[in-house]
Design a protein around this nucleic acid. Structure first.
Lengths: 186, 186
DNA sequence: CAGCTGAGGCTAATGGCATTAGCTTTTGGG
DNA sequence: CCCAAAAGCTAATGCCATTAGCCTCAGCTG
C-alpha cells in the first residue's frame, strides 16, 4: 500500500491474454509481456511468481469467462433448450478465442487456483442437467458425456483439426441432437 | 551412403518418443535427445532439421502406431462390433501412452508429413463406418462425431481432466452406446 | 515536517536451450 | 591408394527465465 502501482497482477494477466490470442501459447513469454506492459522483464516478478504461475492465472481467467457466459445463457431456459444453449455457447466462446482455449491446461485439478474455477464450470453443467432428475452417479456420467462432446469438438475445431470447415455447423447440430436424445433414453 | 551412421533419424525419433513418454512434451528437448543418444546436441541437426521438425516426426509416429493398431482391431469385425472395438482400442492406446497422445498436435493438416498419416487414421474410421451405408456427407458427419467423442474423452482422460477416475469405464461404455444408437437413428 | 520503510522498478549476471558456422574424422567407391 | 561427403565435434550467438542486489519515492509515523 506504500506506492501507487503502475502495474497490477490483473494487468499482467490482461497482457498475457492478448499475447495468447495473437500468437498462441508459445507466444506467451515473460519478455513479451514485459515489452507490452512497458516494463523490464524482471519487474514482472513483483506481480507474478513465474511464467508457470502466469499460465495458471490465464487458465483461471478463461475458466471464469466461460462460466460467466454460460451461466448467463442458461438462466431463464429449461430442459433441452438450456442444454442446447449451453452447448452452443461453449462452441461460440471457443470460436471467438481459439488460441485462448488451446492455451488452457486440461487439468485444472493439479492447480490450486484453477481447481476452484474449473469446479464452478462443471457445476454450471450439472445444474443445467438437474432438471432431468438424474440420480447420483447418473448425473456425473451425463456431465462427463457432455464435457466430452463439447470439449472434443471445440478442441478439434480450435486446433484446425477438421479438414474443411464445411458443414461444421451441421456436425455440431447433430452432436447436440445426439446428446439430447441420449439424455432422454439413458 | 558414404558412411555407416551411428545414428539415424529413426533412432532420434525413438529417443524423442521415450522422452515424451517419461516427461511429457515439455521434456522433449534437443539437448535431452542428444544426451540420451550419446551425441553432442548440434550433431542431431544431421538427422533432423529442427526441434519443430522432430516434433512433427513424433506426431507421425504416433499417428502411424494408432492407425496400425486400430486397423488390426477392426479387421474381422463388422457393424456395431467393429465400431465398439475401434473406440475401445482408441482409449486403450491413449491410456498406455497418455503423454505421447497429449504431445500430438491437433492439426496434422498444416504439416506435410503428418497430413498423410492423419488422413490414413481418418480413413480407417471411415472404412469402419462404411457398412452402415451412409451417403456422402452423412459419412463425413458420422466420422466427425466419432472423432469428437473418442478424442474428447481421450484428451480429458490423458490430461487428468476427470476428477476421480471412478466409473470412467462406465462413462466410456455409455458414450459407445450413445454413438451406436445415434448411428442407427440418424 | 522530517525521516523511515517497503513496494515496485531497474540493471547486471547466470544458466539452459536452439541454432549456426566451420573444423575434423572416417569410409566406401573409384 | 585416394578423396569426397557424411556424421560428428567445438565454439559462438542470441533468446529466455530466473536471481541478486540496488534505487526511488509515496505515505505513514513521530
Amino acid at each position: 500500500m506504500a506506492v501507487r502501482p503502475r502495474l497490477t497482477t490483473a494487468k499482467v494477466v490482461d497482457a498475457a491474454l492478448e499475447l495468447v490470442d495473437e500468437q498462441g501459447v508459445e507466444g506467451l513469454t515473460l519478455a513479451a509481456v514485459a515489452a507490452r506492459t512497458g516494463v523490464a522483464t524482471p519487474s514482472l516478478y513483483k506481480h507474478v511468481a513465474s511464467l508457470a504461475e502466469l499460465r495458471g492465472h490465464v487458465g483461471v481467467r478463461v475458466l471464469e469467462e466461460m462460466t460467466a457466459r454460460f451461466t448467463e445463457k442458461v438462466l431463464g431456459r429449461a430442459g433441452d433448450e438450456a442444454v442446447a444453449a449451453l452447448m452452443h455457447a461453449y462452441r461460440e466462446y471457443v470460436k471467438e478465442h481459439p488460441k485462448r482455449y488451446a492455451a488452457m491446461p486440461m487439468d485444472p485439478l493439479h492447480d490450486e487456483l484453477q481447481q476452484a474455477a474449473g469446479m464452478k464450470l462443471v457445476e454450471v453443467m450439472l445444474a443445467t442437467l438437474r432438471q432431468y432428475g438424474l440420480e447420483g452417479s447418473a448425473a456425473i456420467h451425463a456431465t462427463r458425456r457432455l464435457r466430452v462432446i463439447v470439449h472434443g469438438f471445440a478442441s478439434i475445431e480450435a486446433g484446425g483439426g477438421f479438414g474443411l470447415p464445411e458443414g461444421l455447423d451441421d456436425t455440431y447440430d447433430q452432436l447436440v441432437r445426439m446428446y439430447l436424445t441420449d439424455l432422454r433414453g439413458q
